[in-house]
Computed example of a mutant assay.
Amino acid sequence: MIYYGFQVNDMQCSIYNFSRYKPRVGKGKLVPYKVLQYLPLTPRLQRLYMSSHTAEYMIWCDNYRDSSQMVHPADSEAWKHFDRVHADFAIDARNVRLGLCTDEFNPNRNNGIPYSYWPVFITVYNLPPSMCMKTPYIS
């Protein structure tokens, strides 16, 4: 459960009645069982269109690709199928296409600590292959 809005001060899950915080020893600080880190995606996408350097590349997948060989997801059959099924979305080259990837990462595996991380990467597929997998363009 995400404790947000009117539930921000709740002390337990409204569905399973599970405590939000781990039991504390003495008068220590309340420690949550899980923490969700969130970085808003919309401002990052807006900056891609506001920057004169990247705005021209945000329509690359529609204007500059070479469909004779597979070098970008835009050349795939899945992309073409999506364009046929959602023709109203495919009309405007400025519509943003995103790829999402996640995987478990446990930095403490050797120490026996049971904590793991689940990073979520979002890639903007509108950009050319030389840019879409670079660090500044992955959220």
Rank of each mutant, 00 (worst) to 15 (best):
I2E: 10
Y4I: 07
G5C: 07
F6L: 09
Q7V: 07
V8K: 14
D10L: 03
M11T: 15
Q12L: 07
I15R: 12
Y16T: 15
F18P: 01
S19Q: 14
Y21P: 02
K22R: 12
K22E: 13
G26F: 00
G26C: 05
K27C: 10
K27Q: 14
K29T: 07
K29P: 01
L30E: 15
K34S: 05
K34A: 08
L36D: 03
Q37W: 13
Y38F: 08
T42Y: 14
T42N: 10
P43Q: 03
R44G: 13
L45H: 10
L45S: 03
L45A: 04
Q46H: 13
M50A: 12
S51G: 06
S51F: 04
S52C: 01
S52L: 05
T54A: 02
I59Q: 02
C61Y: 13
D62S: 14
D62F: 09
R65P: 03
S67I: 05
S68G: 10
S68E: 05
Q69E: 13
M70P: 01
M70T: 13
A74R: 07
A74Q: 15
S76L: 07
S76E: 10
S76V: 01
E77M: 10
E77F: 06
F82S: 05
R84Q: 11
H86D: 09
A87K: 07
A93C: 06
N95D: 03
R97V: 05
R97M: 12
L100M: 14
C101A: 14
C101T: 06
D103P: 14
D103G: 14
D103S: 10
F105N: 13
F105Y: 06
F105P: 11
P107A: 04
N108D: 09
N111S: 13
G112N: 05
I113P: 00
I113Q: 06
Y115T: 14
Y117Q: 13
W118A: 01
W118F: 02
P119M: 03
V120Y: 06
V124W: 05
Y125A: 03
Y125R: 00
L127W: 10
P128W: 15
S130Y: 11
S130M: 06
M131T: 02
M131F: 13
M133R: 08
P136H: 10
P136G: 11
Y137G: 07
Y137N: 04
Y137T: 01
I138N: 04
I138E: 08
S139W: 12
S139T: 09
